[in-house]
Design a binder for these strands. Structure first.
Length: 580
DNA sequence: GCCGTTTTCGGCCCGACTGTTTTCAGTCG
C-alpha cells in the first residue's frame, strides 16, 4: 500500500508535468496539485486507507484529485500521469531543470527546432538556432548555454542533488522496512556522507532471505527500468534517471556492509590498512582474523572502529581528510551532535507569504521537538510578496507574546529574516529593526553582481547592530543555482570581528554555507547557528540534516550558538549587539 | 482543479527582473 510520501511524490510529478503541459507553474491545475499535496503533507493518517468521501474532505483535495489518489492506491498508477509521462519523457523533464529555460521556451524549442533532449539543445545552441526564435535573442541563447555548463549536465557525470536523492531513498526504505524478515535498512554511499550531490543511491538491507527484498525493488513503482536483478543485489533506474542499488546482507554482517558501502573509497582504504597492520582483513563481511579464522567484528560499525582502536567516525567525516588520525587520538568529543541543539533561530509562519503553518502550529511543533527557544523570523518588508509591513510586524509581535503564554517552557523570540539589498541595505529603519529580539539577514536577489559587490553587501549587512546572523550565505540551490560569488576570507573576517553568526541552513536544497566554507570558518573563531528555515511543521526535521552537514564541516558544538542554554544565549546576543 | 458563494461560476498571491520589445512575455520566488 502506498505511503503518504508515495502519494506526495505522485502529486509532485503531476504538478511538474502539468507545468510543462500548461506552459506555466502558475496554472490553476498545477497549483491545485500543490495545494492538495500541502493538505496531505501535514496529515498523520494514511491517505491510502481513506475513502473517496474522506479524501474530498481534506483541504485542497477535490473530486478529481481524490479519484486520482484512489486510482493510485488501487492500481498503483494514474492514467492521467501515464499519458503526461508519454508526452513529457524524462529527457524533457531534465531540460526543464535548466535555469532560464521555462515551460514556454521549452515548448517553443521543441516544436520549432525539434529539441527532444540535451544533445539536441546543445546542437541548436551551436547552430545559433535559438536566437532566431521569437522572444529569444543572442543573450538568452548564451544564458542557456552557460546554465547547461554550470549544471554539469554533460554525459554521465550527471549528479543528482541530495534534496532529490534523500527523499527518494527514504520512500524506498519505508517500503523495505515493512518486508517480513528485514531487520535493518540503511542508505549508504555519498548520500549517507551528506554529499551535496549524489551519483547513485546505495541501500543496504539486513535480512536472512534476500528474495522478497529483490522482488520488491524490481517491482517498485519508482523503477522505470530494472538494470540488474540478482540474488542479493538489484539495481533500478528511476524515472528521474537516478540509479538505485539495493544489496542484502545477513544481519550479523550489517555493520561491516554499511561501513563498506558508505565509503568513502579512500576512507575504506585507510581503514583496511589499519586492519592489515593488526594482521586482520577488513571487507564487506567483517573484520576478520585470517590465521585464527575468526570474526573480530562485523555486526556494527562501532564494533569495527573500536576493534581497530578508533573512535566511531560519523559518516559525514569519512572523506580521508584527517578523520582517522583524530579517531585514533582525542576523538570527536566536541563535534556537533543533534542532542546538543536547544533551539531553532530561523523559523517562518504564515506571516511570511511563503510560510505554510500557523504561528500556533509552528510553536507547538518546536515544543514537541523539545526546543527551549525559537526565533520566529518571518520575512521583512523588502522581500516582495513574502514580506511583512511594519504594521503587520507589530501585530505579529503582539501575537507572538500572546502565544508565549501558552508555551511556558518554550521561549518565543520576535525575530525577522531581513533582506540584504544589492548595496547591503536592510528592511525598515534602524529604530524599527531594534525591536526584533533576533534577526537573520539573507540574500534573496541580485545573484549576478560581481564578487566585490557581493562581499561588500554582506559586510555592510553584518556591520549593522541589529543583525545577529547571516542566513544561507550564498543563496545557492544545489544543482540549480550556484549562489553568489564572494571573497570568503573577507566575509569570514567580517563575521569574526562583528561576532555575527554564520547560519548553517538545514534545507537540503541549500545546505548553505557549504561544508568547505564551514571547515574554513572553523579555522578561525566564527560562531554558527544551525537552523531549519522551516516554512511548515514538517520541516523541523531539517535540523537532522543541518547537524549532519555541520559535521561534514567539522563544526564543534562549542561554536554553535543554538547549543547554548537560554540564559547563555541571551547573554551572547546582548554582548554581541553591544559590541557592534 | 479547488473553493465558496450575493451558491454551480468566477476567482485563484503577484511583483521584480530581464530581455525582448514599443507595451510585453517569460522566469523566478
Amino acid at each position: 500500500m502506498p505511503t503518504n510520501r508515495d502519494v506526495l511524490a505522485m502529486l509532485a510529478e503531476l504538478a511538474r508535468l502539468t507545468t510543462l503541459d500548461e506552459g506555466s507553474s502558475q496554472s490553476f491545475k498545477v497549483r491545485a496539485y500543490e495545494n492538495a499535496a500541502r493538505g496531505i503533507e501535514g496529515m498523520s493518517v494514511d491517505v491510502a486507507g481513506m475513502s473517496l468521501a474522506e479524501l474530498v474532505s481534506v483541504k485542497g483535495v477535490g473530486k478529481s484529485i481524490a479519484e486520482k489518489i484512489r486510482e493510485f492506491v488501487d492500481t498503483g498508477t494514474v492514467a492521467k500521469l501515464e499519458s503526461l509521462r508519454e508526452r513529457y519523457p524524462p529527457a524533457i523533464v531534465e531540460l526543464s531543470k535548466i535555469p532560464g529555460l521555462g515551460p514556454k521556451t521549452l515548448k517553443l524549442i521543441r516544436s520549432e527546432l525539434g529539441v527532444e533532449n540535451l544533445e539536441d539543445l546543445q546542437r541548436a545552441i551551436a547552430d545559433q538556432a535559438l536566437r532566431r526564435l521569437p522572444g529569444l535573442g543572442a543573450t538568452s541563447e548564451e544564458r542557456i548555454a552557460k546554465a547547461i555548463e554550470r549544471l554539469g549536465m554533460h554525459g554521465k557525470d550527471r549528479r543528482t542533488p541530495i534534496s532529490e536523492a534523500l527523499p527518494l531513498a527514504r520512500r524506498l526504505i519505508e517500503g523495505l522496512e515493512k518486508i517480513e524478515g528485514v531487520t535493518s535498512v540503511q542508505y549508504c554511499g555519498s548520500l549517507r556522507r551528506m554529499s551535496e550531490t549524489i551519483g547513485d543511491v546505495d541501500i543496504t538491507v539486513a535480512a536472512l532471505d534476500p528474495l522478497p527484498v529483490m522482488d520488491f525493488v524490481a517491482g517498485h513503482a519508482e523503477a522505470a527500468e530494472v538494470i540488474a536483478h540478482g540474488d542479493t543485489k538489484t539495481s533500478i533506474l528511476t524515472r528521474g534517471g537516478l540509479q538505485v542499488d539495493v544489496r542484502v546482507v545477513a544481519p550479523d554482517q550489517f555493520g561491516a556492509a554499511i561501513l563498506y558501502f558508505t565509503g568513502s573509497k579512500s576512507h575504506n582504504i585507510e581503514l583496511r590498512q589499519r586492519a592489515i597492520d593488526k594482521g586482520w582483513l577488513l571487507n564487506e563481511y567483517g573484520l576478520i582474523d585470517r590465521e585464527k579464522e575468526q570474526i573480530v567484528a562485523a555486526g556494527s560499525e562501532d564494533d569495527i572502529y573500536s576493534a581497530l582502536g578508533l573512535a566511531y567516525v560519523p559518516p559525514p567525516l569519512r572523506e580521508a581528510t584527517g578523520e582517522l588520525a583524530v579517531a585514533a587520538g582525542a576523538g570527536f568529543g566536541d563535534l556537533i551532535t543533534l542532542d546538543a541543539i536547544r533551539g531553532d533561530l530561523h523559523y517562518h509562519t504564515t506571516r511570511s507569504g511563503d510560510g505554510r503553518s500557523s504561528l500556533a502550529d509552528m510553536a507547538a511543533a518546536a515544543h514537541a521537538r523539545g526546543h527551549e527557544y525559537v526565533a520566529i523570523t518571518d520575512h521583512g518588508e523588502d522581500l516582495a510578496i513574502n514580506g511583512s509591513s511594519r504594521d503587520e510586524m507589530l501585530e505579529h509581535r503582539a501575537a507572538i507574546s500572546e502565544m508565549q503564554e501558552r508555551f511556558p517552557n518554550l521561549r518565543l523570540y520576535f525575530g525577522c529574516e531581513l533582506n540584504i539589498g544589492p548595496d547591503g541595505s536592510l528592511d525598515y529603519d534602524p529604530d524599527f529593526r531594534r525591536l526584533f529580539d533576533f534577526t537573520v539577514a539573507s540574500v534573496h536577489s541580485h545573484f549576478d553582481l560581481p564578487p566585490d559587490q557581493q562581499t561588500a553587501r554582506l559586510l555592510a549587512a553584518m556591520a549593522d547592530p541589529s543583525v545577529d546572523a547571516i542566513g544561507h550565505l550564498t543563496g545557492r540551490y544545489i544543482g540549480r543555482r550556484p549562489g553568489i560569488e564572494i571573497d570568503l576570507d573577507a566575509v569570514l573576517e567580517g563575521l569574526q570581528t562583528t561576532g555575527v553568526a554564520l547560519e548553517i541552513n538545514g534545507a537540503l536544497e541549500r545546505l548553505d554555507a557549504s561544508s568547505e566554507v564551514l571547515r574554513r570558518a572553523m579555522g578561525g573563531d566564527v560562531k554558527f547557528t544551525i537552523s531549519t528555515d522551516s516554512h511548515h511543521v514538517s520541516e523541523l526535521s531539517r535540523m537532522d540534516y543541518g547537524v549532519a552537514h555541520a559535521q561534514r564541516g567539522w563544526v564543534g558544538a562549542g561554536r554553535v550558538v543554538n547549543t547554548m542554554a537560554l540564559s547563555e544565549f541571551e547573554g551572547w546576543r546582548t554582548r554581541r549587539r553591544a559590541s557592534t
